[in-house]
């Protein structure tokens, strides 16, 4: 029952995805205003040859700060999970 339901859902999604995938034009992006601005002005505004790095660290630098914070928080979470157990505290299966 559940398997049939999930298969039906997946088939419907497959039809939708295929329709979208065939309809999208490849190689001709629809709107390029912002990217053309970045390509034209990365070298005089950020003085960097690598446009991707200048977007990541200069034009969208605040986004990168959030990304670094996410990595930091993930490390904190992993450390919290592998903390040293208190004496007497045990996992059930070890």
């Amino acid at each position: 029952m559940r398997t049939a339901l999930f298969t039906a859902i997946l088939l419907i999604l497959l039809a939708g995805f295929l329709q979208v995938a065939v309809g999208l034009p490849f190689g001709k992006p629809a709107r390029t205003d912002m990217d053309d601005y970045f390509l034209a002005h990365a070298q005089d505004q950020a003085a960097a040859n690598n446009v991707v790095t200048s977007v990541v660290f200069d034009f969208r630098g605040f986004d990168t700060l959030g990304e670094a914070t996410v990595l930091f928080t993930a490390v904190l979470g992993v450390g919290m999970m592998f903390r040293k157990l208190k004496p007497g505290e045990e996992y059930e299966h070890d």
């Binding site: 990365a42 991707v52 990541v56 992993v78």
Partner: peptide
């Protein structure tokens, strides 16, 4: 040239994917 903004977004997505993968594997 190809568009740079989507590549920057992909870079962000990859790093966040690594972080979340590490979290989920630890779980």
């Amino acid at each position: 040239m190809v568009l740079p903004t989507v590549q920057a977004l992909t870079l962000t997505a990859i790093v966040i994917g690594v972080a979340t993968s590490a979290m989920m594997l630890s779980f």
